[in-house]
């Protein structure tokens, strides 16, 4: 069983994996990181989005072995101390209902606000276009990202 080491939410982690282990499964089942969710397991819904070296990726489409010596951030790493302005804006705007897609969407929007602190409405839509939500009709999500963009740093 190969061993990989990587930085997870700012901490150095070592884990034994199988070659066919997918990053999402290793995070959830071996490391107890439950915020990335499995919705489709083939890159079509975005519920499993995590940041890999600061970029949002679909953790169901990455073998765990590929993140050896890389840096992964999940929602657990973003809200270690207090809610980010984005998370607070999600609550303010009723931007989730069942909440299952929320971790993936917040991760993706966090990446957006990090690289583009004041996105337009169209840029928000473009950046979140890979995240499916079945409850909210998306409008409150857009509002939350735009609200957070007015408030400052999001990590």
């Amino acid at each position: 069983m190969p061993e990989i080491q990587f930085t997870l939410n700012g901490e150095r982690r070592t884990v034994n994996i199988e070659a066919n282990d997918i990053l999402l499964d290793v995070l959830r089942d071996k490391l107890g990181i439950k915020s990335p969710k499995c919705g489709c397991d083939r890159g079509d819904c975005g519920a499993c989005a995590v940041l890999l070296n600061g970029k949002s990726v679909r953790s169901c489409l990455i073998f765990a072995i590929e993140v050896n010596e890389q840096e992964i951030t999940t929602l657990e790493g973003i809200s270690k101390n207090e809610l980010s302005p984005l998370q607070q804006a999600f609550i303010n705007n009723n931007s989730f209902q069942c909440g299952y897609c929320a971790p993936g969407i917040i991760i993706t929007a966090t990446e957006l606000l990090n690289k583009n602190p004041h996105p337009t409405r169209e840029e928000v839509k473009e950046n979140l276009s890979g995240n499916l939500c079945r409850c909210t009709g998306y409008i409150p999500i857009i509002e939350a990202v735009l609200e957070a963009s007015k408030r400052g740093k999001n990590e």
Partner: peptide, 21 residues
């Protein structure tokens, strides 16, 4: 009114069926 289940849902701490271990 802001939802009372907001905190757990925006932090990824809400426990869904498959999160049970």
């Amino acid at each position: 009114i802001k939802r009372i289940d907001g905190y757990e849902k925006v932090t990824g701490k809400a426990i869904y069926g498959d999160d049970i271990y």
